[in-house]
Nucleic acid binder design. Structure first.
Lengths: 178, 178
DNA sequence: ACCGAATAGTTGGACATCCGACTATTGGAT
DNA sequence: ATCCAATAGTCGGATGTCCAACTATTCGGT
């Protein structure tokens, strides 16, 4: 709702100006955080717009995609939380809605009676495929930014992720620069 | 809750692998969107952790900061929504909580009886200053990423923002590269 | 002056996400 | 064999965000 379209002015530049004028520190970091948040808002907004046609959100899409890569299209919910990096209660909530819509089915884990398996249904897999095509068409919300540019972006973002302990493997960038 | 700490493996590299293995398109864009989302999650998580000590969230912090830069520390709510790029109902919700905590006060707009002014209270300004110091100390969640590196990151992010119509002015980068 | 369009703010509903707490089950240590 | 810590999933509560719809007010054109 707030993703695309004019901002009248550069919100990030405005933030920088305010910060500098008030003699506040860590300006570059503040600008980076602000710019990151705004970029995320833009991209996520575009993605969710494209997914609304399928009555999906990015969260639910991610869950479907994760299951689609698992053997038999099923996975224990706890593992999903680890992979998606979300709280267990978020997995419960997401699976609740996916199950309600017939895209995923719950079943008891055969070897661990504490665990629950979430399994992709045929409908779920079909919808996932259609949704994936839609996301490819909008280039995952990255607008007209060229692939070569995205390589640089990924490279810079990896420095943020690795600073948080994420095991960042080579970014397979197209054009080198560092 | 999901921000920092190990991911066991590189979630983004894992996504790339799955995509390539399944012959899906727009891999670079998918990776960029995934990496952007994860980076945002990390940085926002750190920021909110730092702000929890003040019973603040980043949303509320942003609202306080915005007001602090306005004349008299007050602004019409609709304008806040424009600046923060959020839906009017989000402003209502945010101001509700800030008012509940005595950090902001509502008052009728003197020239427009439709509008409501949100004004920073003395407590609000004091808390904002303390919270800002805390954010500076954690470098706004940017971890150990050097300022020079942040300049590059800002540059790449600006290409995403400008693709969405944001008026991106010169990023005042420290070290050039394009 | 009047009327319809636009604007400001709120309320209700849906989602996503976190945290704390709780139940059930598993597993390691004694 | 027993007991306590760890793990899996859920529920209730809080927050943030969006959308649709509604009321009140302002504004532009006739």
């Amino acid at each position: 709702m707030n993703s695309d379209r004019p901002a009248g002015m550069d919100l990030v530049a405005e933030a920088r100006r305010n910060w500098v004028d008030n003699d506040l520190g860590e300006v570059e970091a503040m600008v980076a955080a602000t710019s990151l948040a705004r970029s995320h808002q833009i991209v996520l907004g575009r993605i969710n717009s494209a997914l609304s046609e399928f009555s999906l959100t990015f969260s639910r899409y991610e869950a479907l995609a994760l299951l689609s890569f698992a053997r038999n299209g099923s996975m224990a919910m706890a593992r999903m939380g680890e992979r998606l990096q979300v709280h267990p209660t978020s997995v419960t909530s997401t699976i609740d809605r996916l199950e309600r819509d017939g895209l995923v089915a719950r079943s008891p884990h055969p070897d661990d009676r504490r665990a629950t398996l979430a399994t992709l249904t045929k409908d779920g897999r079909n919808l996932l495929n259609d949704a994936t095509s839609a996301l490819e068409q909008i280039r995952w919300g990255m607008g007209e930014v060229a692939d070569s540019r995205l390589g640089d972006l990924n490279h810079e973002l990896s420095s943020v992720r690795s600073s948080a302990g994420d095991n960042v493997s080579g970014s397979t960038r197209t054009n080198a620069k560092g």
